[in-house]
Amino acid sequence: MVAGCIWEYKTPQPPQNSGAEATFFWKSDSSLDTPDLQPFQIEVPYTTEVTGKKFDVPPGAWTIAPGLVRPVSTGQVRRTGASPADTALIDSGFLKEQADIDALSRCVELCREIGNSDAMAEFVKREVMPGPMTGKDIANFARDGAISYFHESCTCKMGTDDMSVVDGSLAVHGIEGLMIADASVMPRVTTGNTMAPTVIIGERAADILIR
């Protein structure tokens, strides 16, 4: 999930290339085995329906989006009926766990530190949001600003426990002839965008099928 810290340009600039090509990985806690944060610099203002109303966001603005890529919180995907045409009921479970609120709040602090640094001064007329905050105020901003990172995964995880859906050959447990080959089979969300590992999963499925 991702939120947005926004600054107004001194001199408005149009987006270039993809508009979001600068990123980095960091740890919210140095004891973690891998980074759990991936902020993006986005060349346009990035808000939610909540933060967009709470803050006066000018069009000539840019964002550093605090991103949490190793959330502890989990959601659910449930069937609404027996027909294949019945829609799925999706609960993303954003920020259910306090650990995720703490990590995203730390990422907001980190992004504010970067955006307000001397190195970025030539691009900053003023900080638009969130501004100076501490404690519960940062946590509330993180909740208001949280939005999907658009890389959902792990709903049909690979493994052997009771919650696993596919085995090591991508075959669905208990259903002959059915395979799943997408990001849903990841037993743990990868750090960073899921496209590359999903391509590898697809290539592995192709290798299995052509044997």
Results as ranks from 00 to 15, higher is better:
residue 107 C to P: 08
residue 158 M to I: 03
residue 88 A to G: 08
residue 121 A to H: 10
residue 89 L to I: 00
residue 168 G to Y: 05
residue 102 D to W: 00
residue 157 K to S: 05
residue 131 G to E: 01
residue 144 D to S: 06
residue 113 E to A: 14
residue 79 R to A: 12
residue 92 S to I: 07
residue 163 M to V: 03
residue 138 I to Y: 02
residue 49 E to Q: 14
residue 62 W to P: 03
residue 68 L to M: 07
residue 84 P to S: 14
residue 89 L to T: 00
residue 153 S to C: 15
residue 141 F to P: 06
residue 71 P to T: 05
residue 61 A to D: 10
residue 52 G to F: 05
residue 153 S to F: 08
residue 88 A to P: 00
residue 101 I to N: 01
residue 76 Q to T: 15
residue 53 K to G: 15
residue 136 K to Y: 03
residue 94 F to V: 01
residue 76 Q to V: 13
residue 167 D to W: 13
residue 69 V to S: 02
residue 151 H to E: 04
residue 176 E to V: 12
residue 80 T to P: 01
residue 169 S to T: 15
residue 127 E to G: 12
residue 121 A to S: 14
residue 81 G to H: 07
residue 99 A to H: 02
residue 164 S to G: 04
residue 144 D to E: 09
residue 86 D to E: 11
residue 170 L to E: 05
residue 159 G to V: 03
residue 75 G to T: 07
residue 78 R to E: 03
residue 156 C to K: 01
residue 172 V to L: 08
residue 137 D to H: 12
residue 174 G to V: 03
residue 50 V to I: 14
residue 59 P to Q: 11
residue 119 A to N: 05
residue 140 N to Y: 00
residue 154 C to K: 00
residue 158 M to W: 01
residue 158 M to Y: 05
residue 179 M to L: 11
residue 170 L to F: 11
residue 105 S to W: 07
residue 133 M to F: 01
residue 53 K to M: 12
residue 155 T to A: 12
residue 72 V to Q: 10
residue 71 P to N: 10
residue 106 R to Y: 12
residue 79 R to C: 06
residue 89 L to Q: 02
residue 125 K to T: 02
residue 103 A to C: 05
residue 169 S to K: 14
residue 126 R to P: 14
residue 156 C to L: 04
residue 146 A to Y: 02
residue 70 R to Q: 14
residue 127 E to H: 12
residue 170 L to H: 01
residue 130 P to D: 08
residue 150 F to K: 02
residue 163 M to C: 03
residue 77 V to I: 15
residue 67 G to R: 02
residue 144 D to Q: 02
residue 166 V to H: 05
residue 101 I to E: 03
residue 79 R to L: 15
residue 107 C to G: 13
residue 119 A to Y: 07
residue 137 D to P: 02
residue 71 P to A: 11
residue 101 I to V: 14
residue 61 A to N: 09
residue 126 R to F: 08
residue 174 G to E: 11
residue 80 T to S: 11
residue 83 S to D: 15
residue 178 L to V: 15
residue 57 V to N: 01
residue 159 G to R: 03
residue 71 P to C: 10
residue 77 V to Y: 04
residue 128 V to K: 04
residue 153 S to E: 04
residue 56 D to N: 15
residue 57 V to K: 01
residue 169 S to F: 11
residue 136 K to I: 09
residue 176 E to M: 08
residue 155 T to R: 04
residue 120 M to T: 06
residue 140 N to Q: 13
residue 116 N to C: 12
residue 65 A to C: 12
residue 134 T to F: 00
residue 99 A to C: 01
residue 106 R to E: 14
residue 71 P to Q: 09
residue 78 R to F: 00
residue 174 G to Q: 11
residue 159 G to N: 03
residue 114 I to G: 05
residue 85 A to I: 06
residue 58 P to Q: 08
residue 175 I to A: 08
residue 131 G to I: 03
residue 176 E to D: 15
residue 133 M to V: 11
residue 135 G to E: 08
residue 170 L to P: 00
residue 53 K to T: 04
residue 128 V to C: 06
residue 177 G to W: 02
residue 74 T to F: 11
residue 153 S to W: 10
residue 65 A to I: 04
residue 112 R to S: 07
